[in-house]
């Protein structure tokens, strides 16, 4: 019980951090905190293997990927969004949604299962049980996911391939990028760089 409350609080705080924090790095780390809290919740739900996977894959790989990209692209702080109307509409919808979901959960009370029975049936959701089901009942899903992963891999590699410029519009971009790089080099040489940040910052905003 206590575990649940503490972890629930951490998760919600982390979630709020994701959506409210200015700096992308802070938001990403906040999400990591949320993920770890949810992992603990998984443990309380007799899903030990999944908890481990959550930490290793989700927090350990996916979030790391996010951090790489954030740092690579040097995504910086965001300005205020332009349309307050949109923001208030979003908040309102969020509140309604949360209320609706909580109500939905509370209106459908379930008989809490016998912990001992569950512990024995699930055996902590260990790898053996999951494997038994994954390679048996859900074999098709498993195969499809494999195909999906392969496709994702190939797609991701193909997307970031830097081929020869196809000509036309993008050549302008390439020269612009070159120009900014040249600027950065000049600024570098002149020792005028501020805060280690190249001119081609994000949130260049509207065109």
């Amino acid at each position: 019980m206590v575990t649940f409350v503490i972890m629930a609080v951490f998760s919600v705080v982390g979630a709020l951090g994701v959506i409210l924090l200015r700096q992308p790095i802070h938001a990403a780390l906040s999400l990591v905190g949320t993920l770890l809290s949810v992992a603990v919740l998984f443990v309380t739900l007799q899903a030990h293997f999944l908890a481990a996977i959550q930490v290793i894959v989700y927090a350990g790989a996916i979030m790391v990927l996010f951090l790489f990209v954030i740092m690579l692209l040097n995504i910086e702080e965001q300005r205020r969004p332009v349309m307050p109307a949109l923001r208030w509409a979003a908040y309102a919808l969020g509140l309604v949604a949360a209320a609706g979901l909580i109500a939905g959960a509370l209106l459908d009370p379930r008989q809490a299962p016998d912990a001992a029975v569950v512990r024995e049936t699930l055996q902590g959701g260990n790898a053996e049980l999951i494997a038994e089901v994954l390679f048996g009942e859900f074999m098709l899903a498993f195969q499809l996911v494999s195909v999906l992963l392969l496709t994702g891999l190939v797609g991701a590699v193909a997307l970031v391939q830097r081929g020869p410029p196809p000509g036309g519009a993008t050549r302008a971009d390439a020269t612009r990028a070159d120009a900014t790089r040249a600027d950065a080099a000049r600024a570098d040489a002149a020792g005028q760089r501020s805060g280690g940040r190249p001119p081609d910052a994000l949130e260049a905003g509207g065109r």
Partner: peptide, 23 residues
């Protein structure tokens, strides 16, 4: 894109409400 997302969200919320209220 965000207008689209807003529309999707609104639709989802309506569904949630329907499920909760009508049961």
């Amino acid at each position: 894109v965000r207008n689209y997302a807003l529309a999707m969200m609104a639709g989802a919320v309506i569904l949630i409400l329907v499920v909760v209220l009508v049961g």
